[in-house]
Design a protein around this nucleic acid. Structure first.
Lengths: 108, 108
DNA sequence: TTTTTATTTAGACATTTGTCTAAATATTTA
DNA sequence: TAAATATTTAGACAAATGTCTAAATAAAAA
């Protein structure tokens, strides 16, 4: 989980993931979309790869990156599990004194 | 989203969230569960508060922290939305040549 | 009122992170 | 084989982060 949350903790990396939703891209194509050096993007891709969020496939001199939805599902499961295991607090109702006089309305 | 993912990107903070699932706790009680100074825990609580993941209520000299599930739901929605907007790739079927000779089996 | 208790704020410091340029590697083209 | 192209690796550096101790704040107890 640590590596996963680390991967998500950067706007550039989240943008890369969003881009890959529309289809696979080469490292160069990804880098072209950012105002950032290629080595920097390469580093971000490496972190996404370490987190198993993307898969890299070398095709000749190009490297194509694609989403790995399996791991995305794991993160989702983490949050669902978290939610479901939250214990609902007993609502502490304000203590109200018993009325000494009971109003009683009788049907006619 | 940035502040949220930042909040999740630390094991101590995630542990604090897990602890609060079982019920509200004071800052001191939380700190006692960790092998870490109170100011450090206080800082983590501050980041969780900034991300709106927890709510702090002062009661006398104590401060009680509790989960804010609303924001947790937002993160969950982010992932659900992400998943649902992934375009399924057309599976590139390998190109197979048309057979020059068609095998034909006739029913008797 | 003084002391104790609960918590945060301030500031220092080491580690991690994100970015860059230069160089290395690997593949394709001339 | 030499040059061009795609990408990564190495190493430097500034900024962000997590941790600590000491001091400040605020409420409760003596």
């Amino acid at each position: 989980m640590n590596t996963l949350f680390k991967a998500f903790n950067d706007a550039t990396r989240r943008e890369i993931l969003e881009m890959l939703k529309d289809g696979d891209m080469t490292a160069g194509d990804i880098a072209d979309k950012f105002n950032m050096s290629k080595p920097s993007i390469s580093h971000h891709l490496d972190l996404l790869k370490q987190a198993d969020l993307v898969v890299a496939v070398k095709q000749g001199q190009f490297i194509t990156y694609s989403l790995n939805m399996t791991v995305m599902d794991e993160v989702l499961a983490w949050f669902v599990q978290f939610k479901s295991s939250v214990k609902k607090e007993e609502i502490a109702l304000p203590k109200v004194e018993k009325p000494r006089i009971r109003l009683q309305i009788n049907k006619q």
